[in-house]
Amino acid sequence: RKESAFKSMLKQAAPPIELDAVWEDIRERFVKEPAFEDITLESERKRIFKDFMHVLEHEC
């Protein structure tokens, strides 16, 4: 699924995404990734990013 691929892309980011990361600041790192391009709505990208950050916070 496209959403899973997007989350995997975020999870495998190098360097890892920090807990205090803001979408607008890290977005540039992913613009050339196929998983990024597959999610065409920016609002959807932000939503998935927020979900990812929520999970990340609870893993720590």
Rank of each mutant, 00 (worst) to 15 (best):
E44A: 06
R27Y: 00
I39K: 05
R45G: 01
H58Y: 14
D25I: 05
D51P: 00
K7N: 12
R47T: 08
M9L: 06
L41H: 12
D20C: 08
H54Q: 08
R27S: 03
K2W: 04
M53R: 07
K2G: 07
A5W: 04
D25H: 14
E33H: 07
M9A: 02
V31M: 10
Q12L: 11
E24Q: 05
L56K: 12
E18R: 13
L41W: 08
D38R: 11
P16H: 05
L10E: 00
E3P: 01
V22H: 13
I17F: 04
P15F: 03
T40S: 13
E24S: 08
E44Q: 10
H54F: 12
D20P: 06
F49Y: 08
E3Q: 05
R27I: 01
F49H: 03
M53Q: 13
E24W: 03
R1F: 10
W23I: 00
R29C: 04
F36R: 01
R47M: 10
F49R: 01
E57R: 11
P15V: 05
R45P: 02
E3C: 03
E3K: 04
D51V: 07
H54E: 14
F30C: 02
A13E: 01
I48C: 15
A14V: 12
P34L: 07
S8G: 14
V31E: 14
M9R: 01
F6V: 01
P34V: 09
S4E: 15
P15K: 05
S43M: 15
H58T: 14
F30H: 02
V31S: 09
V55Y: 09
I39L: 10
C60R: 10
E3M: 03
S8L: 15
D38F: 14
H54L: 13
T40K: 14
P16C: 07
D25V: 10
F30N: 04
I39D: 02
E24I: 04
E18L: 12
K50H: 13
E57V: 10
I17L: 13
R1H: 15
A21C: 06
A35K: 04
C60S: 12
S4K: 15
A35W: 02
D25Q: 08
S4V: 15
E44M: 05
E18A: 14
P34C: 09
K2P: 03
A5N: 15
F6I: 00
L41E: 14
P16G: 06
F6C: 00
R27W: 01
I39F: 03
M9V: 03
I48V: 07
E18H: 15
L56I: 05
I48W: 07
Q12D: 07
E33L: 11
K2E: 11
I17H: 00
L56N: 12
K2Q: 09
K7L: 10
P34M: 06
P16K: 13
F36K: 01
S8T: 14
S8Y: 08
S43L: 05
R47P: 00
S43H: 04
E59S: 09
E33K: 06
S4W: 15
K2F: 09
Q12S: 10
S8K: 13
L41A: 12
K50T: 14
E33M: 07
A35N: 03
P34T: 10
A14Y: 08
K7E: 06
R47F: 05
E57Q: 11
I39V: 11
A21Q: 08
E33C: 09
E44D: 09
S43Q: 07
R29Q: 12
A14Q: 15
V22F: 04
E18C: 15
L10S: 00
W23Q: 01
Q12A: 10
S43R: 11
I17C: 02
C60F: 09
H58F: 09
P16M: 12
K46D: 04
M9T: 02
K7A: 08
H58L: 11
M53A: 06
E24Y: 04
E24H: 03
S8H: 11
E33Q: 06
R1V: 13
K11A: 14
E24D: 11
E59G: 12
F6A: 01
E57W: 08
E28V: 11
F30Q: 01
R1D: 15
T40L: 11
